[in-house]
């Protein structure tokens, strides 16, 4: 059954009509307050989409809903992941089928070693694909290889997940997980926030080396800076729960110049502009 499913996946990817991710008129509320007010977004295989917007615009809510966080209520609309109903799946099934969320605020898991989580997560993903669990030697070889890609020391493996990690280390740890789990759709929620320029380059390189014609990305960011290192195919601007503008990479530069204010009909937002790094 797993083999057949693999074949299905393959044929789905070949079929140009079936998109990696299709969000149709998505409305989401939390505690009775509507946060997403009709999102439409379509991501094809191999595409990298950047989703930009000011704080409170609904960016992170969208990321969490796509990953399956149940504190949000989807009140209307649908989401298709490789043509299947994503919202019907539990968070763990979404992950095993190849959806990965890099958290804006990675969670500390005390008492659980990083390597233990990596192994459990990888085995869950492999099982879904009908593959055997990796033996200890192969697993460690894979992990070491990926550690190098994000320039993390092996000692991170034997520390509790994210405990005592600096902000930059937490974000790199998310990218490490992504490189090991090899998702087909990676949603990176403000992975660039709080990173110094060196860490940002490492993360960007991790993403660039990871791009394939089959793998898609949704990169959520407040700042334009990351997009100087990672070239998006499309840029969307979200504001007050709606996508208000979509364009090519040049849209990101425009936002850097003018801030978000003009999109909401106001003046260029000076504070946001000032916050954009070099």
């Amino acid at each position: 059954m797993n083999i057949r499913e693999l074949n299905n996946n393959h044929s789905l990817n070949q079929d140009k009509n079936i998109r990696m991710l299709e969000i149709k008129d998505l409305h989401v509320s939390v505690e009775g307050q509507e946060i997403l007010k009709g999102i439409n977004l379509s991501v094809g295989a191999g595409e990298l989409h950047a989703l930009m917007g000011p704080n409170g615009s609904g960016k992170s809510t969208l990321a969490q809903v796509l990953a399956g966080r149940d504190i949000y209520q989807v009140t209307a609309g649908e989401v298709l992941f490789e043509g299947r109903d994503l919202l019907a799946l539990t968070p763990e099934v979404r992950a095993r089928k190849g959806l990965f969320l890099s958290f804006q605020y990675p969670v500390v898991i005390s008492g659980v070693n990083n390597i233990y989580l990596l192994q459990a997560a990888l085995n869950a993903r492999r099982k879904e694909r009908g593959e055997e669990a990796l033996d200890a030697v192969d697993f460690l070889a894979l992990v070491r290889n990926r550690l190098q890609a994000v320039q993390m020391d092996e000692s991170f493996l034997y520390r509790p997940v994210n405990e005592g990690f600096s902000g930059g280390e937490k974000k790199r740890n998310e990218i490490l997980q992504m490189l090991i789990l090899e998702p087909i759709l990676a949603i990176l929620d403000e992975t660039d926030s709080g990173l110094d320029i060196d860490a940002l380059k490492i993360v960007a390189e991790g993403i660039n080396n990871f791009r394939t014609p089959q793998r898609s990305f949704l990169v959520i960011t407040h700042y334009q800076r990351l997009l100087g290192y990672v070239e998006p195919d499309w840029v969307h601007v979200i504001s007050e729960g709606r996508i208000v503008k979509t364009g090519g990479p040049e849209l990101a530069h425009e936002l850097e110049e003018r801030g978000y204010g003009w999109l909401q009909g106001g003046q260029p937002d000076v504070t946001i502009k000032a916050a954009i790094g070099p």
């Binding site: 763990e92 979404r94 992950a95 095993r96 969320l101 969670v107 008492g111 659980v112 997560a121 869950a124």
Partner: peptide, 30 residues
Amino acid sequence: LEEEALFYLRTRGLAVPEAQRLLIDGFAEE
């Protein structure tokens, strides 16, 4: 059990009982 931690582990492909076990284990580990 922190709902956020449980969700984080689930987004890594761990089923609820497995995620709970990991968190309980982690709590006892200290």
